[in-house]
């Protein structure tokens, strides 16, 4: 759970905790509502896809910033305290021997990681815990996490750039309005990026299967056969 909490969007935190088993529910609820979308638009930065000044932007939502880690216990006012990564990591030396949470003797234990054979410091920056790092050692802000994902997932990044990967809302016609896109980690938990399973909720019924009459479907219609 630590992983999920770390990577959540600030304004979605409450919903995410309400549905810990279905991290998509929160995202979907937000995306379906135009109001939620416009409020999140304040937190996104514009990225112009076309040269024409008359066109609206394609807005890609970005993470708020470096994650904050929930601490165990409560403070005297009953709040759950949070701490920045650097609060601890700035005073501790990185141990490159720990490549998975399994070998940790304190903190982040039990974090489920299933992202290839990547070690923690493949992505987290040992020099500055509040940033990420690219393969060449360049530091990348948490807000620009997509730059890091794209190092390996260039095919997905290319598809994303052309609207063929990742969800969106708003306008197809940028002459008439902006388009809002979500980013990689909205769907893919970076520690365990496999898209989660979902439960089918809504099914069209045939007109005979009205709720009050659930069992009178086509098998039921057979009883009319004697007519």
């Amino acid at each position: 759970m630590v992983g999920i909490v770390v990577w959540q969007q600030g304004h979605r935190a409450g919903e995410r905790i309400e549905h810990p088993e279905d991290p998509l529910a929160a995202r979907y609820a937000g995306a379906a509502s135009p109001d939620a979308e416009s409020s999140s638009a304040a937190q996104v930065s514009g990225e112009h896809e076309a040269d024409s000044a008359e066109l609206f932007s394609v807005l890609i939502r970005k993470p708020d910033g470096p994650p904050r880690v929930k601490l165990a216990g409560r403070d005297p006012q009953g709040r759950s305290p949070e701490a920045a990564c650097s609060t601890c990591h700035s005073i501790r030396d990185p141990n490159f021997g720990n490549t998975t949470p399994a070998t940790l003797d304190e903190f982040h234990q039990g974090l489920s990681v299933a992202h290839g054979n990547l070690a923690c410091y493949a992505c987290h920056n040992p020099q500055d815990a509040d940033t990420l790092r690219l393969a060449d050692g360049t530091a990348v802000a948490y807000q620009d996490v997509m730059t890091m994902c794209s190092q390996c997932h260039s095919q997905q990044a290319e598809s994303f750039a052309h609207g063929a990967h990742g969800g969106m809302t708003g306008h197809w016609d940028l002459r008439r309005g902006p388009q809002m896109k979500i980013n990689c980690i909205d769907c893919h938990d970076p520690h365990s990026p496999v898209y989660p399973k979902m439960v089918v909720g809504f099914k069209p019924k045939d007109r005979f299967n009205v709720p009050a009459d659930d069992h009178h479907d086509h098998e039921g219609a057979d009883s009319h056969g004697e007519h």
């Binding site: 086509h218 009319h224 056969g225 007519h227």
Partner: peptide, 11 residues
Amino acid sequence: IVEYVPSQLEW
């Protein structure tokens, strides 16, 4: 496969 048997009204 949605089966069909005429209803009484149809008959």
